[in-house]
Write a protein that binds this DNA or RNA. Structure first.
Length: 292
DNA sequence: AAACGGCTCAACCGCGTTGTA
DNA sequence: GTACAACGCGGTTGAGCCGTT
């Protein structure tokens, strides 16, 4: 079934940034009459805009309960946790952050959180450690530093921190490999399919506990706060606590999950090969020992 | 001071969903 | 059950701001 494009009947409707006068008209009208039908609102409010544009302006900017200013750390944690469960369901995420709009959260995610996670070696889509080659380029740099660090005074904290980061990256890679090995050894049976694969929680009780951001972060998701490489605050204890608890919490369709798994597997093998080559070139036996 | 590039965020676009006749 | 209108959502765009060269 086709649908006519929004405002197609009136090609002369204004687009682009709203003026203060337009804002005032919209606010005055909604305060007096409520928004009612967005389609008919612009005409009644004396605005040369389409209803969609009015709705967006109101919900994302003019609504009185909009919270302005920077996101707090608490909000940031909550967004990450909710995103790990809900994916890009920005409006669903926004319902848990009073005063924040889906658009605002989406922008915040795309411009800041996403980059932060990438820098920490975490895939922002899966919330799992990255295993792509770009990341491995950084990894090999870290490995060099780590090896240097071993030669230096162990009390040299800057080197030690970077060495910790390298070790963390290595362990995460190893963990992924182990996972793949385990998966490949078993025949895929329906019991092996995660119960929640492809399912998006429909009620708040479906992600009970997620709204307790601290509990969730400490319990399952990588505690990226403690991995804040930028601020040199890697806490190896917290990693030890979490290293066996990297849950597949992202809800994607089974087909997508299979695709992602396959793609991830091949890049992990490539990464693995690269690390072995490097290890061999260094005459080391680190990975051999781990495997044994 | 000017040019440039990166970043932010308001706004738009297109599609899926829902409601109604 | 079908057709259509309206709404809502997520992805994308682009103007403007800001820092760097």
């Amino acid at each position: 079934m086709g649908r006519s494009p929004c405002c197609a009947e009136d090609a002369n409707v204004k687009k682009g940034p709203w003026t203060p006068e337009e804002d005032q008209k919209l606010v005055d009208y909604i305060n007096t009459n409520g928004h009612g039908s967005w389609r008919s609102l612009p005409k009644q409010a004396g605005l040369n805009r389409c209803g969609k544009s009015c709705r967006l302006r109101w919900t994302n900017y003019l609504r009185p309960d909009i919270k302005r200013g920077k996101f707090t750390e608490e909000e940031e944690r909550l967004i990450i946790n909710l995103h790990s469960v809900l994916g890009n369901k920005w409006s669903r995420i926004a319902t848990h952050l009073p005063g924040r709009t889906d658009n605002e959260i989406k922008n915040f995610w795309n411009t800041q959180i996403r980059r932060k996670l990438l820098n920490l070696g975490i895939d922002p889509h899966t919330h799992k450690p990255r295993t792509d080659l770009d990341h491995l380029l950084n990894l090999s740099q870290l490995l060099c530093v780590a090896q240097l660090g071993n030669l230096m005074n162990p009390l040299d904290t800057a080197f030690k921190l970077q060495a910790d980061a390298a070790e963390l990256a290595e362990t995460q890679l190893l963990q992924n490999l182990m996972k793949i090995m385990n998966t490949n050894q078993r025949n895929p049976t329906p019991q092996n399919i995660p119960i929640n694969a492809g399912a998006v929680p429909q009620t708040s009780s479906d992600y009970q506990g997620v709204e307790n951001p601290l509990g969730y972060v400490q319990g399952g998701l990588i505690n990226y706060e403690n991995l804040d490489i930028k601020n040199h605050q890697i806490l190896s204890n917290s990693f030890e606590q979490n290293e066996n608890q990297l849950p597949g919490l992202v809800s994607i369709s089974p087909e997508m999950e299979n695709m992602a798994e396959t793609a991830q597997d091949s890049s992990i093998y490539e990464a693995w090969e690269k690390l072995l080559m490097e290890d061999k070139a260094d005459g080391g036996s680190y990975w051999k020992e781990i495997l044994e």
